[in-house]
Structures are given as C-alpha cells and as structure tokens.
Write a protein that binds this DNA or RNA. Sequence first.
DNA 1: CTGAAAGCGCTTACAG
DNA 2: CTGAAAGCGCTTACAG
Lengths: 364, 364
Amino acid sequence: MASPGEAPTGSGKRRPTISDVARAAGVAKSAVSYALNDKPGVSKEKRRHILAVAERIGWQPSSAARALMGTRVGLMGLVLNRPARLLGLEPFYMELISGMQEVLGPLDIALALQIVEAGADELAVYRSWAAKREVDAVVVTDISQRDPRLALLRDLGLPAVVLSPPLAQADPTGFGPPEQASAMPWLWTDDITGMRMALRYLVALGHRRIARVAGISRYLHTTARTTALRQEAARLGLPEPAILTTDYSQEQGADATRSLLIGQPRPTAIIYDNDVMAATALQVARELHLEVPRQLSVIAWDDSMIAHLTAPKLTSIKVDVHAYGMRVASALDGLAEGSLVESGPFGLAGLEVRDSTGAAPAAD
Amino acid sequence: MASPGEAPTGSGKRRPTISDVARAAGVAKSAVSYALNDKPGVSKEKRRHILAVAERIGWQPSSAARALMGTRVGLMGLVLNRPARLLGLEPFYMELISGMQEVLGPLDIALALQIVEAGADELAVYRSWAAKREVDAVVVTDISQRDPRLALLRDLGLPAVVLSPPLAQADPTGFGPPEQASAMPWLWTDDITGMRMALRYLVALGHRRIARVAGISRYLHTTARTTALRQEAARLGLPEPAILTTDYSQEQGADATRSLLIGQPRPTAIIYDNDVMAATALQVARELHLEVPRQLSVIAWDDSMIAHLTAPKLTSIKVDVHAYGMRVASALDGLAEGSLVESGPFGLAGLEVRDSTGAAPAAD
DNA sequence: CTGAAAGCGCTTACAG
DNA sequence: CTGAAAGCGCTTACAG
C-alpha cells in the first residue's frame, strides 16, 4: 500500500499507441487507424484481428491527438447564466442534464458545464471554446429577442442546439428557427398546450379572473406562454389576465403574488412560471388569510418534486424534462457528427392536478 | 444574413498558430512558446512584444496540442452516481458546482460532468479519463468503507479531491486521509458541529427522545453524523437515539418518519439528513394529526431553499456549500498544477432556527 | 538568449 | 488492399 503522502506516479507504464497495436498485430499503422475508425482499406479478417489486438493490449484513443486532427472531441458545452442561488433550487437544469447524460454517457461523451455571472462572460466562453476546439457542440438556453449569442455562434461556426420556442410572430430574432434541418436547430417544450390546459381547467372550475406570475420577460419562452395565455383567454371570453414578470426567485414571486392579492378585483386563480414561486404563493396566501384552494387556486409549472413538498400539494403543468434532455443530447450528437438536425417542439405538456386548485369562490 | 438552413462553415479563416505569431513578431517559434508559457529563454521586451502580437492577431492556445504534450487540459471531472430523480431535487450538487465554477471559471477551466447509474460505470469513466488524459483532476463524493474508487484513482495516478469526513476510527478504508499534503486530499464539511448544535438546541427546548432519519448508511459522512449524534446524546445523558437509514428520497423519508411516529415511545424531535425528507416529514405529521412544532419538532439538513418553502418553515443545519465548492475547486487547481494539497475540514456548520422546532410537549 | 529539429498520437492522401 | 510519409499545433532538449 502506497504511503498516503506520496503523489500518484501514473504507474510508469506507457499507454499503448496505435504503433504498438500495429507492431503487435503485424500490420501498418494506417491499417490500424482504418480498422479502428471503421473506414475502408482493411479486409474483414484483418480488421477483426486488429480490433482484438487493440483490446488485448488495452489501447485507448488519445482524445488529444484526435482533437488535433479536427475530429470529434467528445465534449458538449452547456453554459448557464442564471445566478447560482436560483440554479440551486431550479430542478429543471439538473433534470435536463441527467436526461442528456442518459444519451451521452453510453456514447462516452461528457458535458462541459460553465456557470457564468454575465452575458459577456458567456460570449467569451463560446469564443474560447470555438478557438480551442474544446467542444463539439453547445446547447443554448433562455433565448431572448435578437439574442447576441445566436449571431456569435453562427459566426464562430460552433454547432448549437437552441432551447427555445421559435416565437410564432414574424421572427423578430432574425435567426428564427429554420424550416429545414440545420446546424442550429431549435427545440422547445410544448408550453402552449400546457398553458391552454391549465386555463381551460380553471375555467371549468368556474374561474374567470385569472392572473399569471411569469419569469424573466425577455426570454422567448416567457413571451410564448404569455401569448398563449392571452389568446386562450380571449377565445374563452375571459377578461384580460393580469401578468406580472419576475426573475423566478422566491422574493419576486412573493411580491408579485402580494400585489395581485391585495389588488382589486382580486384574481381567484394564479398560474406561475415555476414551482418555486407557486410554493411561495401558498405562504403569501396564508399570510393574507386566504385559503388555498377555497379562496385562491394556484397552478405551478415544471412539476418538480417541490410540487409534492408543499401543503396543499401543487397542481402543476408537467413537462418531461428528462426525456427532453435525451432529445437535446441526440440533437447535439447529430450536430457533432456533422449532420443537420430538424427543429421542432418536444413532447406534450400535461396538467398534474393536486390540491392547490378548486372551484372558484361562489361570491364572485 | 446566412440562410437558416445552411450549415455554419467555420468562417473559412484558419485560426492563428504560434508559427503565425512568430512570423508576425519576427522571432522563432520556440521564443513564442517560451514567452506564452512564462518560461526563461526570452528577454523582457521580446516577451512583451510577442504577447502583444499574439493578442493582436487573436492567437488562442490549442488545448488539443497542449494535451498531446501532457500539460494541463483545463477540465476537471465530476461523476455523480445518484439516481437522476434524486439529483434533480438535491440542491447540494448544483450549489457545489456553482461554487466550484466561481473559482474555475476565471481560470478558464470547465467541469466535465458525468451522471452514471452504477458504481461500475463510474470506475469505467475514471479509467477512460485517465487513459485519454481527458481531465486534470477529479472530485469524488459519497465515499464508503474501502471505497474501490480510491484504490483505482491511486493506481491510475489520477489526482483526486475526496469529499468525505475521514472517519476518526482506525481508518478502516485503508486509504484514510493523509496527515500531510497529498495528491489525494480529503475535504469535508463540519458535520459534527452541526449535529451537536442541533442536539443541544433540542435538549435546551426540553426534548429527550430524539430520533434521526439518516441517508445512505454506507457513506462515511452518514457514519460521521451518526457517531456524532450517539456521542453527544450519551454526553447529554439522553436515551439511545433511534436511527433509521434511507436513500434520501421522499418515499423512504416518509416511511421512516411514519414508523418512528407510530412507534412507542414516540420521539418528540427528529433530525433529518436533508431538507427533502424533513419537508416530507411535515406531511406525514399532518397525516397522523400531529402538530409541528407543538407535538413534534423537525430539524432538516443543508438549509437549501426548500427549508423556506414549507409550512411551517424548517429549522435546518446550515452548511455554506457554495464556499465549500470554491475550496474544492482551489484544491483541484492545486493538484492539476502538480502541487500536493492539505486535507482538512471546511467551514463551520450553523443552525438556522425557523418554525419547525419548539418546546417539547409537556406530557412527556 | 536564439533557431532548427524532433516528437507527442493520430489521420489521411499518396504511391505501390 | 498495404506501407512510408507528411502534418495537426504545440513543447522542449540541443547546438549555436
């Protein structure tokens, strides 16, 4: 047993290279390379033999050498630009990442994760990654109008999966989702269906004054949800819904809830953009002596485990984030392979009904 | 504006190499390399000139070429081996990662994150990373007795930061924390203090029958907390505390709570190993018509935002995970630099008192 | 202090 | 199908 204070030595054994494989197999280096990469130029038996020898002597590809040749690196990039304290509680990203890993892991691809404090830092990370060929592709989230990252990534030639709804209106981003497969496909969850289901459910329960506490307003997915709410409310003949925007935090969620609940006329139901703010809303309601769901119905979004931890448990719009992550990973892999990938919505949102929603109060 | 269906081309411009810098600066390639790496062999003015030229023509190091030379790669590895659905809610890892990034980001070091389903997969990842020189160092969490990962990492010569208390007893792991700085330092949060504070606080409130719902029993940090509880309970003259172990999930947390609360004698206070299970305990108490804190006091661990979302809000043992992450990152950077790093405890645990704890019920 | 040269491990035309 | 050779971008002895 090595004495604990001793630095690991790397065992001293040199790792085998393709030259070693070639020597052991009695063939040329190039034959080994062809065999290992499944390229023409070697006979079936020779290929099998080479593979067996490589396996036997424990050859592993040098990702450094491969990267130098401009081939795939085996790393996908993800930059997160939300404050750490918000990320800590938003289960969304961890679930997205774990879904991605379910696909990337078996492919022996790791995720390079960077958390930054400012938009400029994020651009710098992309520049550096592109210049150093450090990742094969990246995934970009929280897209806003004319998002500068999209232009940069295009200019850098860094393949990217854009996680955002396309914004049905006349594509104000200028980089809107391509109709055909591209090296910068857009993928998004079906927020419109989620919003519609929530609204129709509330209306079926007799609610008419319905408000929304939204996330960061400049994100396209926030806009998409807002538009869906307005359109569906109009279609159902409801009064224009009050919509307040926040930064997704507990604090701003509580403030928005308070200002809605002390306003006139008071809404009988509020739809939130995440579970955290909806959970906080329950506390604000208690503080104002409003019973949930008797006097106020609350609908959350994401359906993370938080929705189960509150009292009452939260009715929540549900998205299968894990499966979404798997889809994103496949797209990344396709891009890294040099393929073009189709844009499109992902999955179906559902409504998970629990105890925070009920019939509208009689005295409307 | 490029047509959206068009693949990015990489702009066609070749990125500048040190040869380009050498030509532009009118010096030899080696001079450029020395200047860029702060090594002797160039005069002060020449060094400055070279740096300026490199900057001007936009030179960026090729991490691939550097990795090929055996120098630092600029990637640290983190493998997570807990089920995805648990990771999604445990804010611990996201906060740890964000703390690490606060240090690694400015150093231009990314985190390679892998989520695996089985211990064998985790070992395979380390083998592959070591063989391919893909990361500079790794961080290992959730250490158990005679953890096979520690032996493997040592054999692979992969520098590692071990996140675990050392287990005061005669080091049954065989790889226990070295007394001096090493290439495999142990870092741990001060769980003993946290446990002691919680227990003393409960005793001050008049509690004597105190139970604990622990996490996974084979982890050393679980053992450390259990030992701290037993010792402190004995010191305070309390009856032997009941201790149930779980997998940290809501389900098992609820089951353990139920079995404690329907047992005889019923504990008047329970200490949980994370916030999630403590939050679930509130629901179980409600289900059994027990009022918190009047009839049952609940203490959580981690003090994540979940502790604020419940009703009543949770009293929680607090650890500054973000700062812990920063410390871990510094250790990783030191190891990657080839330095040996000191083992030791990190920070001070505290007790964040909220509404889930109160005086012990009179009818004891 | 400088400059020419070899080499890290791999891939890929190229001539046989 | 095979084998010798050049080259990816960098680092590092080595002789001047």
